[in-house]
């Protein structure tokens, strides 16, 4: 058994997730929000790998899932940045407080 208990990893992941959530919610800049979301995804990956290591070490699922999450994160980043660029081009801003078209 490793000398670092599972809960340490989980706590780090939880804190990272919360910080990411804060970044995603508090930032004015759309890119900042995206960065926050990336942090949250990373936190999830830490959880996945930690669970693999401590609970399901003989299997593959934990790591495989983490790879899938990384893939999805990459795809999400690509699409999100494309959206941000499109918005920037049409509205000349990436400030989410000025983007309120959802209301109508």
């Amino acid at each position: 058994m490793s000398s670092v208990p599972l809960s340490w990893y989980l706590i780090v992941a939880a804190l990272l997730f919360s910080i990411g959530a804060y970044g995603a919610l508090a930032r004015r800049n759309a890119i900042g929000i995206l960065m926050g979301i990336e942090l949250m995804l990373n936190a999830v990956n830490i959880n996945l790998v930690a669970f693999w290591r401590y609970i399901e070490v003989t299997g593959l699922a934990g790591q495989l899932f983490a790879v899938i999450v990384i893939t999805v994160a990459a795809a999400e980043a690509a699409v999100a940045l494309a959206l941000i660029l499109a918005i920037y081009r049409t509205r000349d801003t990436v400030n989410v407080e000025e983007i309120d078209l959802l209301k109508w």
């Binding site: 890119i31 995206l34 960065m35 980043a77 940045l81 660029l85 920037y88 000349d92 801003t93 990436v94």
Partner: peptide, 11 residues
């Protein structure tokens, strides 16, 4: 992301 930041200079 760095690219995107640099591509949106006015902000």
């Amino acid at each position: 992301i760095l690219f995107a930041i640099m591509l949106t200079p006015r902000v």
